[in-house]
Simulated scan of single mutants.
Amino acid sequence: MKFVLNVIWLVLCGLWMALAYVLAGLICCVLIITIPWGIASFRIAAFALWPFGRTTVERRDAGAGSLLGNVIWFVFAGWWLALGHILTGIALCVTIIGIPLGIANFKLIPISLMPLGREIVPTNAPFATR
């Protein structure tokens, strides 16, 4: 079932959202100081391509640096990407078939707002429920 949902997701909105994350990552990689945000954006792009069967968990070793980085990310890129997830999620929830895809889009909002200090893991991993 996850495979079918991932294929439908990829066709309807996954490709577009992943391209938005890749664009944000490329913009972040232009300057040397913003490369960590670019790497985080590329990780989220892979998650946005194939979200079913994976989830995000907080990293216990993330400190004040990731908090500061998340604030900077939120100001420059996070809220734009979250807005894209909100609009796409609402559009997908209009149809019955699109409701699981809309919920998956809403699931991506927290990581699009604050990507640093989070890790993408398979849902069947023992630590995925934290």
Rank of each mutant, 00 (worst) to 15 (best):
I44M: 08
I39M: 07
W79F: 14
A48D: 04
R60L: 10
W50K: 15
L81S: 04
V57S: 06
A82Q: 10
D61E: 13
V75C: 09
I39S: 02
W73K: 03
R43S: 07
A64Y: 12
I39K: 10
L68G: 14
R54T: 08
R60G: 13
I44G: 01
R60P: 08
A82Y: 09
I39F: 09
R59T: 02
N70Q: 11
I72M: 14
N70E: 02
A40L: 06
S41D: 07
A82V: 07
R43D: 08
I33A: 15
G63A: 12
L49P: 00
T55K: 06
G38V: 09
W80P: 01
A48M: 07
G53Q: 12
V71R: 08
V75A: 05
I35H: 01
W50Y: 15
T34E: 08
L83Q: 02
F76G: 03
S41W: 06
V57H: 07
S66M: 07
G78D: 04
W37I: 05
T56I: 14
I72A: 15
P36T: 01
W79Y: 08
T55P: 05
I35K: 00
A45W: 10
I35Y: 00
L83F: 11
T55G: 05
F76V: 13
A82C: 08
W79H: 12
N70L: 04
R43W: 03
A45D: 14
F52L: 11
G65H: 01
V71M: 13
W80K: 06
V71Q: 04
P36W: 05
T34I: 07
A64I: 14
I44W: 04
G78I: 02
S66Q: 14
F74G: 01
S41V: 13
S41M: 03
